[in-house]
């Protein structure tokens, strides 16, 4: 019995860092969209096409330049590392083509931005998506 308890405890301790919260993309409740496809999310965050299906101009935000959250988001979305994403933006910014997502320094700032902008889009952990925003895409690892 005691052995079983220790095993369960060890399992819980080991499982914590492994089981990571699911990432979701959130939008403004007045954005006029219910869901986005994976291609839509890629097009908006990589600056290829920043128009939501409802016709509103999309305004994505990145959370931190070097944050683990940002690294995880792009790794799941397009399987690219942060240096690759930065190189991608260097190409577009220095040819005057398009802008990277604006950068905010916290999840709360990202949620505030999305809640205040009809076209705002951000990525957060599912549990962090509160009533101010609407989940429109789930990232699956």
């Amino acid at each position: 019995m005691r052995v079983l308890f220790v095993l369960i405890l060890a399992g819980l301790v080991l499982a914590v860092p492994v089981a990571r919260a699911e990432l979701v993309v959130v939008a403004n409740p007045r954005s006029g969209i219910e869901r986005l496809s994976e291609d839509d999310v890629i097009n908006v965050f990589l600056g290829r096409y920043r128009r939501l299906p409802s016709g509103i101009a999309a305004e994505p935000v990145d959370i931190g330049d070097d944050s683990a959250l940002r690294a995880r988001f792009y790794r799941i979305l397009v399987n690219k590392s942060l240096p690759e994403i930065n190189a991608y933006w260097a190409r577009l910014v220095f040819s005057g083509k398009t802008r990277p997502p604006r950068v905010v320094d916290s999840i709360e700032a990202a949620l505030q931005f999305v809640a205040s902008q009809p076209g705002g889009l951000a990525y957060v952990e599912r549990a962090q998506a509160d009533r101010r925003v609407k989940i429109v895409f789930e990232l699956t690892e």
């Binding site: 096409y49 128009r51 260097a90 190409r91 040819s95 005057g96």
Partner: peptide
Amino acid sequence: PDPRLALRFGRIGADFMMLADSRLVGYSY
């Protein structure tokens, strides 16, 4: 004026290279 349309005036880059529109930005390729 719209996410679908971009107009530029002035001195602009010649768009020759795929995957590195500015050939001078070594970091980008």
